[in-house]
Simulated assay, not measured.
Amino acid sequence: MNPIETVVAQDLVRLTPATAHSADVIDLDAHLYDYYGLTSLNMMLLMTSVCEKTKTALIHFTEDDIAGLQTPRDIVSLISKFSELENPRVAGSVGTGA
């Protein structure tokens, strides 16, 4: 797993302990709501935590971006566009949109 996948998997385990017991067994292609049972509040907690840990400003993402996230892999893909972990050149850039 790359660093962003690891962060997403660890945070998903923290939010869904009944479904996912270990970050190693997270299926990045499983549905966040149907398989992992996330609620909209859980999704915001997940995104806030992942953004914080990957040094990604949540302001980069629109409501439609968040609503379109269906799998952990979708989160990884979206965060990867703006994360300082993947793109040191985006450090400090805010409000560029997704």
Rank of each mutant, 00 (worst) to 15 (best):
T39F: 05
Y36W: 02
T96H: 11
H60G: 07
G37F: 01
T16I: 04
T39N: 09
C51Y: 02
D29S: 10
Y33N: 01
L78Q: 03
N87C: 11
Q10L: 06
S22F: 08
A30Q: 05
S83L: 06
M1P: 06
E86T: 13
D74Y: 05
P72Y: 03
D29W: 01
Y33L: 02
P3G: 02
H21R: 14
V76S: 08
L12D: 00
L38P: 02
L45W: 02
L41E: 09
G92V: 12
S80R: 07
L15G: 04
D24T: 11
L69F: 07
P17V: 11
L78T: 08
S22H: 13
L45M: 10
L12Y: 01
A18G: 12
I26R: 00
L46W: 02
P17E: 10
T54V: 05
Q70M: 09
V13A: 12
I79V: 15
Y36A: 02
V76T: 11
L45P: 00
Y35L: 06
A67C: 08
P72L: 04
A18Y: 12
V50M: 03
S83Y: 05
F82C: 13
I26A: 00
L46Q: 01
L46C: 06
K55E: 15
A20N: 06
L85W: 11
D27C: 07
S93P: 03
L46F: 05
V90A: 09
L12K: 00
N42V: 03
T6F: 01
L85F: 14
S77K: 14
N2Y: 09
L38M: 07
A20T: 13
A98I: 10
Q10T: 04
M47N: 01
F82W: 15
P17Q: 08
S77H: 12
L12G: 00
M44G: 04
L32V: 03
K81M: 12
D11N: 12
E63M: 13
E5C: 04
D65P: 08
A23P: 00
A9T: 06
